[in-house]
Design a protein around this nucleic acid. Structure first.
Lengths: 221, 221
DNA sequence: AGAGTCAGTTTTGTCGACAATCTTGCCTAG
DNA sequence: CTAGGCAAGATTGTCGACAAAACTGACTCT
């Protein structure tokens, strides 16, 4: 859905993308109710388009809908985070293993180049790394798995929710440097075509990441 | 979406369920184009309802849609099957592990009872087991994981596609007895709360199952 | 003859109106 | 005073019409 580039973009698509962004980044608050008419004026489209967007967001697990009652944005809870990261650890671990097997040499070279760029940014204290860099790293490995089901489940289904937790809890701090080291080791394993190690390291990386977010989340409640 | 029971059922829901059934069971052929107007007369609802159904089916990976062009039912291919089962093995393996941890004693007792029923059916040569029984077994373990993300990904997202491959390739034969034995061992591991073994046995069971379907599929091409 | 173009047809995308359902707050009965 | 029900208002569900885009096939020009 998202990772195919060559197709037309309808108004519904644009609304959906903006809508999703607004939810992920907290412009529309977590756990708030979504009024179709209200949203249709906000985004200047008809209710049909809004309804379609809400349906798509439901598929992403970003909103929950009840028939004849309405939809609301999901709430961010410790339980939800744990469940999400359990699935993520499993799937991205598999992605790393498949990437070690299926990425082309060129793609691996690009991945290493990306890592060098990030290294420079970390050294320069450019915190931009945290968001875009981390995302890009995971994206490339997910795509490198070459498994379309896996790709779609992660990118269309799980990733935006992960980002929602991260953005809304304001992830920053010393984790950046640690995470970079973990990325480096994963890429090394992939470069060596060591499938098993790539999976283990990726799972560990995500597990650490979970602990970090969990700490923030619990401290906020 | 599917596993919550207490909510109203709209016309769109009913259409979606029937529509999905028709695709999974081959009433609507794999890889065929879907005309919205045609379907709206077939199911006696407006195009809006059909469009919503198609969107939901796209989320299930049962149809693919291109903007301004239309939707078509997915094709059944060996590559698609392999990709699907890779993900399934990973996720259901995790489900078995979580089920060994999270199912209540009562739920485990029910699962054992279910197995006894199946044993009787297998012994009586009742081939009904193949579909409903196998499905029920996997459903209970998935639900037993108590992880809502995992449950929704598997049941709303993957399971119907698995069933589509199975139904349309006409799974029958001696595999039934073997599969029953595998089920028994998985349940034993869950009963013993042996998380690691439960995962391993479930993964192996699914892997065998894949080989069996793959054989059929390749022989048909 | 083949490639490109253009108009007609068909199909999808978007919209606003109407119908069905739920929610809210008042009123009445016990 | 509380519980239940009823009516008014608001929200969601469904529909058919219109707009926009893609496909089809005939026609022209090289």
């Amino acid at each position: 859905m998202l990772f195919s580039l060559d197709q037309a973009v309808t108004a519904a698509d644009k609304t959906f993308f903006q809508f999703r962004k607004d939810i992920v980044e907290g412009e529309i608050k977590a756990d708030s109710k979504l009024s179709e008419t209200e949203l249709s004026t906000k985004y200047a489209v008809s209710r049909s388009v809004i309804r379609e967007s809400i349906n798509r967001l439901e598929s992403c697990h970003l909103v929950e809908r009840k028939a004849n009652v309405g939809a609301r944005v999901v709430a961010l809870t410790p339980e939800g985070l744990v469940e999400l990261y359990q699935v993520r650890e499993c799937l991205e671990g598999m992605a790393a293993r498949l990437a070690a097997k299926n990425m082309t040499d060129q793609e691996i070279a690009d991945l290493n180049a990306l890592l060098s760029t990030h290294f420079q940014e970390v050294k320069d204290g450019d915190s931009y790394y945290q968001e875009a860099g981390d995302l890009d790293f995971h994206y490339r490995i997910i795509l490198g798995s070459k498994n379309t089901h896996l790709i779609s489940t992660l990118i269309d289904g799980i990733y935006h929710l992960v980002r929602m937790y991260r953005v809304q809890l304001g992830m920053t701090g010393p984790r950046v440097t640690t995470a970079f080291g973990e990325h480096k080791h994963v890429v090394q394993a992939i470069s060596n075509r060591d499938e098993e190690l790539a999976e283990i390291l990726m799972r560990r990386h995500i597990s650490y990441s979970k602990l970090n977010i969990e700490k923030k989340l619990v401290s906020q409640l």
